[in-house]
């Protein structure tokens, strides 16, 4: 990812007017976001349906509220309702779908022209994710409002600190998920059946991220195991921040930072090797 920011300098062509990197980056970002937002606006019906497809936390909430297991956990109905709503919201803004799009771009032959541009393709995908989230925002707000209409007793406002921390954690969680997807998308250079991986990665995402059950409910050994994976950071950590649960905040952010740094390195290496291979095959 980092190499891409330098892409415009590394292409070797003489510059007409030297732009400061920051200024240049800002311009590119604005243009990308504007175009991707316009594009995503065309797909708003799909975005709404995708948002609705994330309703698993609500189904799970229904089971947890009815079961005595919730009470045994020390989470009353209010706390459970807040947790699962927070999990739904966080999940909405951490979804990434780089792999599917990248694979299609590669198959349809759109990759080669993208490689010729002095902009890393992943920036484009990042912009379209951000644009999609902007479209999602009103839908998610509407669903949350409906939720409080049905369960008014669950209503809460997080403290300003918690809200800010949750926002930061959600953004980082999204970046983490985005990078996980990017690293797998890079495998497209080696295999044409990468979409099968999408299915595999969805399984731990469902069971270990906290979407289906708060991690506090896991047996201790399983919870420790889950916390060695990045999945709880994607939903459980930001959701608990938002819902006001007890959290080791510093540890969570440290883990996010470490995972993001590691994946950034991995994606850079994989991308370089992949592009080299792509070039060697003369595609």
């Amino acid at each position: 990812m980092r190499s891409s920011a330098k892409g415009s300098r590394a292409d070797g062509s003489p510059r007409v007017r030297p732009l400061r990197p920051l200024q240049h980056g800002f311009r590119v970002a604005r243009a990308l976001l504007a175009s991707q937002y316009a594009l995503m606006l065309e797909f708003r019906a799909e975005v709404l349906l995708w948002a609705l497809a994330g309703l698993v936390p609500f189904v799970m909430l229904a089971v947890w509220i009815e079961s005595p297991a919730g009470a045994a956990l020390g989470m009353g109905p209010t706390q459970l309702a807040r947790y699962f709503l927070a999990a739904f919201v966080v999940r909405q803004f951490t979804v990434a779908w780089v792999m599917v799009v990248f694979e299609e771009d590669a198959l349809q032959g759109r990759l080669s022209p993208m490689l010729l541009q002095p902009l890393h393709p992943f920036w484009r995908y990042l912009a379209s994710h951000v644009a999609e989230q902007a479209i999602r925002l009103p839908f998610v707000a509407l669903i949350a409002a409906l939720f409080f209409l049905v369960l008014p007793w669950a209503f809460w406002l997080p403290t300003p600190q918690r809200a800010l921390l949750a926002l930061a954690a959600t953004i980082l969680a999204f970046l983490l998920n985005f990078l996980i997807q990017c690293s797998m998308a890079c495998l497209c250079f080696w295999s044409d059946r990468v979409n099968a991986l999408e299915r595999l990665i969805f399984i731990p995402m469902l069971f270990l991220s906290g979407m289906a059950a708060p991690l506090e409910a896991f047996p201790p050994a399983l919870r420790r195991l889950a916390e060695w994976t990045p999945f709880p950071l994607l939903v459980h950590f930001p959701a608990q921040l938002l819902a006001g649960g007890e959290m080791n905040i510093a540890a969570g952010f440290t883990a996010l930072a470490v995972w993001i740094a590691g994946l950034l390195l991995l994606v850079t290496l994989l991308w370089r090797a992949g592009v080299k291979r792509y070039g060697a095959m003369g595609a």
Binding site: F43, A45, E46, L49, W50, L52, A53, G54, L55, V56, V59
Partner: peptide, 14 residues
């Protein structure tokens, strides 16, 4: 575009 509604159905049927 309504084909995506199938994902909503699947989530609900879970």
């Amino acid at each position: 575009k309504t084909w995506n509604a199938i994902e909503v159905l699947r989530a609900a049927l879970s």
